[in-house]
Design a protein around this nucleic acid. Sequence first.
RNA 1: GUCCCCAUAGCUCAACGGAUAGAGCAACAGCCUUCUAAGCUGUGGAUGAGGGUUCGAUUCCUUCUGGGGACACCA
Length: 539
Amino acid sequence: MVETVKKYLNELIIRTINNFSKEKQLPRETLSFRIEKNSLADYGDYNTNAAYILAKYLKQSPMQIAEELLPYFEEAKKDYDKNGWIEAIKISQPGFINFTLNSQFIFYLQSSLYSSPSAFWKAGFWGDILKDIGRKVQVEFISANPTGELTIGNGRGGFLGLAIANILSLAGSKVTKEYYVNDMGRQIEKLGASILLAQGKSLDSYQPTIKPEECYRGAFVDNLAADFKASSNETLIAIGQRVSQKILKNIQSVISQKFKIHYDKWLRESDLVENGYLKKTRIWLKQSGLTYEKDNLTWLKTTAFGDSEDRVIDKPHESGFEGAGTYFLSDIAYHLYKFQKGGYDRVIDIWGADHYTHMQKMLMAVRQMHKDKIIKPQQKFEVILVQLVMLVQNGEEVKMSKRSGNAYTIAELIDEVGYDAAAFYFLEKPPNTHFNFDIDKAKAQSMDNPVYYVEYAGVRIKSLLVKNKQRLSKPQWDILKEREEINLAKKIGEYPDVLREVVLGLEINHLLTYLKELAAAYHNFYNNCQILSSEESLK
RNA sequence: GUCCCCAUAGCUCAACGGAUAGAGCAACAGCCUUCUAAGCUGUGGAUGAGGGUUCGAUUCCUUCUGGGGACACCA
């Protein structure tokens, strides 16, 4: 079965090179040539750099190799390409081999997609992909602390995590979406203290380890404080936990209502105490000989892995902190839990770029898990860091700070610019780039936002479908003649390859780029070709 | 100070080491008697600076300049 253009060409190239190598008595080696879509139509539709790869090996010029290769291509084509889907194979300076496709091929690809979509996705196209992308995958994203509202920054990780989870499950992985809730520790105590401060109370009687100037401020905290009554003898932690539960409910409703994300699992840090994983992790690390005591603290020898300093994982157990350990320790426990209990063969975490050092430490920890064979070798761990988003308003940067409480929330943003526009805007850029989110432009729904360009194409298609009540049961691909029609068809023909590459590389922004190109091809086509008035070419 | 990310058109962003660096917006010139103007067609406009590797560099290495971020017994 032929699923994608590149796969089809790939087979032809392999056959050609094999024949070539045999006659030239070259050792059989797998060559990592590429197949690329051509940027300029003059050269044909696709190209390969196979001649360059061979040239390096044979120490001849690529152009010379390409010329030598050409008869082998023609020979292989006779045998392989019986339908004549490859119209022409040509060489161009300085050594590219170009393929021009017969439109029939594109039509064939589409009709196989069109006539039986589910079979198309399940067939060989995805079948061999699962071992690369993981059968059982966990994507953990957002995981913001329940001490404030979700910010614009969470928007980037949120939409990216959702898109990655969706696309992996489309490709056949069993995907679990998870949110990790930090419901213990100093952040929670800080929240409790903040509430009391907002109520104008003194912290003196609580003996807090938090200074007032570290506490959260602003309307958000004031609102929570307004209808909160601390009972006597309630600790700061207890107050914080009670308030954080309320905040978590709020976060959950934003996530389901605004983000439209349905998490499979919400795991709390305190769950790791209850299920014993924190304890288990302590024991494991101690047995590994990677810990030592100093200054009344327990340290992990991360310097053994190249870290600049060892890290604290445990501190004296203060009241209210029993079993908590540091964030590093509980996160190691969490990941051990993911791999052992969850049994995932791929864990993807999406974190803000401020977690860079934490990421390095966690990679070390998982490496040690592999080394000690407490998780399986095939269980993989990866982190995608998303760079922070800079919020711009009135041409100026808006500082986003949870503590001062003037953060623009993601819920407000989604309401203002619309769900699709927000998702598009975030996903359009690769995660490791910095970008400015200009509130004014997004609010004004100006044409700076390419989502309208793409959506308008969708609107046009829809309106045609509504107006054209009669649907053809079977599309007739072979009657397209106009340049715009064929361009559009070829663009559609790229889709399986694009999707495959996005699935493998998790580069969601490439999918968005493709969408923009597809929309352009459609607008172009729509503008030039009458559809409803033509009888046969209904589509 | 150490480490990470980034630098491309007036603006926001693309470009798995490949050919003439692409889109959208903005500017300019055209196209609404049509399923169609949230669109189409055309024009002008760019790789921060210097070295290196390569047949070939926006992409890899290196130095510099300029932005952002991280360097906790917070998460």
